[in-house]
Write a protein that binds this DNA or RNA. Structure first.
Lengths: 233, 233
DNA sequence: CGGCAATTTGACTATCCTCAACAGGGGTGG
DNA sequence: CCACCCCTGTTGAGGATAGTCAAATTGCCG
């Protein structure tokens, strides 16, 4: 049952703080789980009952207003940590965007384990501080950027994040990058605080201006990365 | 020099994790500093050179676009922690809104000290997780709420946060609360992702509808708290 | 090939922003 | 002590951006 031995995020996730023996103990309280696209792992407003590491796939963190408007407040990738340790109510739901594999722990078990392993907590703290930085930078986009700046920023961010995952650099076109988005148009709108129609219009504008190509609904080829960065503001 | 003995946030800040002796060691590497309103402690984009605890006053965390638009991404109160431990570049500036007292550490000193005191790191982790939750909830406001919902949410949040600080409950009017805002109109706009004019118009609307009174620029009396909560969406 | 959902496009509207003028009030200096 | 000034905030008019509603189109899947 020593999943961790073959875990692809072994050295990038917070588990990297643990030696082989400690890892075995952690392994004993965790279990792997596969999620289908659209499947939720945690629901908004429930007591925090579990935490997890992402092994594979992309998931969204989202909150909703009572009348159904949604805002995606975070996107997590392999090696990222999910959930709210040390009590409290989770104020975001967690839902798989692609097929995903996660390593799940009951929150109580994880809390106790973490209390005995300061190195693990340190890793988690660093990760949380980084996530807070990233989240605050995103607030500038939500509060102060125009629709065109938002969409350009989104594409730049995706190009960075997906590097090495779904990104191929095309020979002879160093700026050119192809990526497969893990988001529907609606989900992009929910990330950017826009409507689906506005996102769609911005995409076609970028296509008409020759900055991107849109071979299919989920695929984007970036033809002029620098122009996108400039437009991101 | 044992400032900590008389420190008003001794039991609420992350220092609460330390015993008397440890506190002495921490005290030795920190120093108190007073900030005037508008004075900055940390500038956006600089290397992280110091961290601090807030003892007294209110400070803002803010980021700016190149062309000068500002977004306030966090507001910190007494006992809150400021700065970016464990390296990296701080992506937010920190500026006092009111006169403020802070307990400052060089980042390197603090990092080393924290490494030897897991209890302190644990407190800091809890605080950071809480701040991340709060920040993500604010993203829903920035991305999905209307101007009237934003302003109402802001007043509700301020009423909660300032309780016990600048807040008096008026006998016979349990819903009624008076508070002195630490923000100018422009700063409120920068918190909410609005313009100063829109904020001003929302305030006068709330006044005309009898939900609040505005005795002076910085003072607000909430006459109908429940209505504000309802309008916050 | 047909059906369905996602996306795009179009027309129109509302909200919020911009620009501009005005008002208030707190502090300073005469 | 009062008048003035400057800064902050308010109010108004007009316009632009993004939202809403509706219809057309695409492409995916059986």
């Amino acid at each position: 049952m020593a999943y961790c031995d073959t875990c692809v995020v072994r050295n990038r996730a917070i588990c990297a703080a643990l030696d082989t023996k400690e890892l075995e103990a952690l392994n004993a309280i965790g279990r792997r789980r596969t999620l289908e696209p659209g499947e939720s792992l945690i629901w908004e407003g429930e007591d925090s009952v579990l935490v997890a590491n992402v092994i594979e796939g992309v998931l969204k963190l989202s909150t909703n207003t009572e009348d159904g408007r949604e805002q995606i407040v975070g996107v997590v990738y392999p090696s990222d940590f999910i959930g709210r340790p040390f009590g409290g109510v989770t104020s975001q739901g967690v839902t798989a965007l692609t097929e995903a594999k996660v390593c799940v722990f009951s929150r109580g078990d994880f809390d106790s384990f973490a209390a005995d392993h300061p190195g693990l907590e340190h890793k988690l703290l660093q990760r949380t501080l980084g996530e807070l930085d990233r989240t605050r930078r995103w607030m500038l986009l939500l509060g102060r950027k125009s629709a065109s700046e938002k969409v350009a920023s989104f594409l730049v961010e995706m190009a960075e994040r997906m590097t090495g995952v779904g990104c191929k650099s095309v020979p002879g076109f160093p700026q050119q990058r192809a990526l497969t988005l893990p988001f529907s148009r609606q989900q992009i709108a929910d990330v950017l605080g826009l409507t689906i129609e506005t996102v769609s219009r911005q995409f076609t504008r970028l296509k008409n201006e020759g900055l991107v190509e849109l071979p299919s609904r989920r695929d984007i080829v970036i033809l002029d990365y620098d122009a996108l960065v400039a437009e991101a503001g």
